[in-house]
Structures are given as structure tokens and as C-alpha cells.
């Protein structure tokens, strides 16, 4: 099967899961119970927002070469704060937490704000999905030899070696087969890799016995920081 057809199949599968969940939430909702209505409304919003984000990322990935995404100095901590602010409730909803740790002195990186946001967002959503209940994932920003490294550490099953090798050799050039990692096609990671490559950033993962750290390394901007 060619990569394009496989990519369409994978994207379709990724859309199917949240749509099936939204349908089930609507079917299970008891309109007589105001607490349940509120709770399910929150869940429906959360699932639909995540799905919309994924659709939007897919469109961006298809239009990277159209000159829509300019590279500019970006305040990396601000982007992390925005992601944390948006995903905070989702972490709570899943009985998980995200902890921020910023040790970087260089505040600006050369990147595109939207693409960088999507990469960090994808890492964090991945952490929600694969970390164990009540665990605290860590979003860390630190300086690293001419680069700023943004990493998200989760505590759950380790990344499969096959995806790890593809990331390490920068050969994740298509979503992996859907049977490869249950309930995940690696689509989010594939999109993140495409965005990172477009920004000339390095993307990678570190396997831990109790989880995975995904990271992106972005070149430091030498423009004077106003932040």
C-alpha cells in the first residue's frame, strides 16, 4: 500500500475513535440529571477540541511548503505556558497532572509559533494518553549547546523500540501501521516530526523503564529578548 493511501487510512482511523466516543457520550447522557449533563458537556467539548486540533494539524502538515509558516524568534516559555493552560483541565479530567520546569536562560528560539505549539501540544496529549493514573508528567525547558530543548516526560509504558528507532534515525516519514501501537497510529508523532523538520529542529525520544521523554531541540535566536 502506498504511503499516501496508508496515511489517509491512518488519519481516518484516528478520527473514528473520538467520533465514536462523542457519539457514545451523547447516547449515555441522562438529560434529567443536571450534574451528568454538565460533566458530559465538558467531556464532549474536550474530545471535540482535541479532534479539531488534530484535523487542523493535518491540514498544516499538508501545507507546510505553501509559505504559510514563517520562522521568527519565539518565546519558548510562553508557548509552553499556553499549552499548559489549554491542557490543564484535560490533565485533571484524566486524574493526571502536568508539572512545568524551566531552567533555560535563552528565552527565544527560531521557530514558527503555531508549529511549535502543535509539537508541544502533541507531546502533552501523548503523555495524558499513555501515563498511568495519578502520575505527574513533566514539561521541561532547558538550554542545550546552541539549542533549547523542550521535553515532555510521561510515566507509563515505554515507547515501542520500532518507533524509537524510526525517531532516532529520523525515518518516521509516514504514520506507522495502525496495528503497530494499539489505539495509536503514531499520527501525532508523525505530524510533530514533519513540523520539527520544517523548522530545522531535532525531534527525538528517550526510553525510560517507566515511561518516555519526547523532546524537540530548537536553535536559539540571538535577537535580544524583550520577554
Amino acid at each position: 500500500m502506498n504511503l499516501e493511501v496508508n496515511g489517509i487510512l491512518v488519519a481516518a482511523h484516528e478520527m473514528k475513535a473520538p467520533l465514536a466516543l462523542m457519539r457514545q457520550l451523547a447516547l449515555c447522557l441522562d438529560p434529567e440529571d443536571p450534574n451528568e449533563v454538565r460533566e458530559y458537556q465538558q467531556r464532549l467539548i474536550s474530545v471535540s477540541e482535541r479532534t479539531l486540533k488534530q484535523v487542523s494539524d493535518l491540514s498544516k502538515a499538508a501545507r507546510l511548503e505553501d509559505g504559510l509558516f514563517e520562522m521568527e524568534p519565539v518565546a519558548v516559555r510562553n508557548v509552553c505556558d499556553e499549552v499548559e493552560s489549554e491542557l490543564n483541565s484535560l490533565f485533571r479530567l484524566n486524574s493526571k497532572k502536568l508539572e512545568l520546569k524551566y531552567t533555560n536562560k535563552s528565552r527565544l528560539v527560531i521557530a514558527n509559533h503555531d508549529l511549535l505549539y502543535s509539537i508541544i501540544y502533541n507531546f502533552c496529549v501523548n503523555a495524558i494518553k499513555y501515563s498511568t493514573a495519578n502520575s505527574i508528567s513533566r514539561l521541561v525547558v532547558k538550554d542545550q549547546k546552541g539549542h533549547v530543548r523542550v521535553s515532555v516526560r510521561d510515566f507509563g509504558p515505554a515507547l515501542p523500540t520500532k518507533i524509537y528507532k524510526k525517531l532516532a534515525t529520523n525515518s518516521l516519514n509516514a504514520p506507522v501501521d495502525i496495528s503497530f501501537r494499539p489505539d495509536s497510529s503514531g499520527l501525532g508523532l508523525f505530524i510533530a516530526t514533519k513540523f520539527a523538520n520544517f523548522m530545522h529542529a531535532n525531534i527525538g525520544a528517550i526510553r525510560h523503564r517507566d515511561g518516555t521523554s519526547f523532546y524537540v531541540e530548537l536553535p536559539i535566536s540571538n535577537q535580544a529578548s524583550l520577554f
Binding site: 466516543l21 457514545q24 457520550l25 467531556r43
Partner: peptide, 13 residues
């Protein structure tokens, strides 16, 4: 089921 929200729907039913 690893999808907690989906599992929760089944539980409520």
C-alpha cells in the same frame, strides 16, 4: 478498555 471515557460510559450504562 484503555479509553477511560469510553469505559466510563459503559460503566454508567
Amino acid at each position: 478498555d484503555d479509553d477511560e471515557m469510553f469505559a466510563d460510559c459503559i460503566k454508567k450504562t
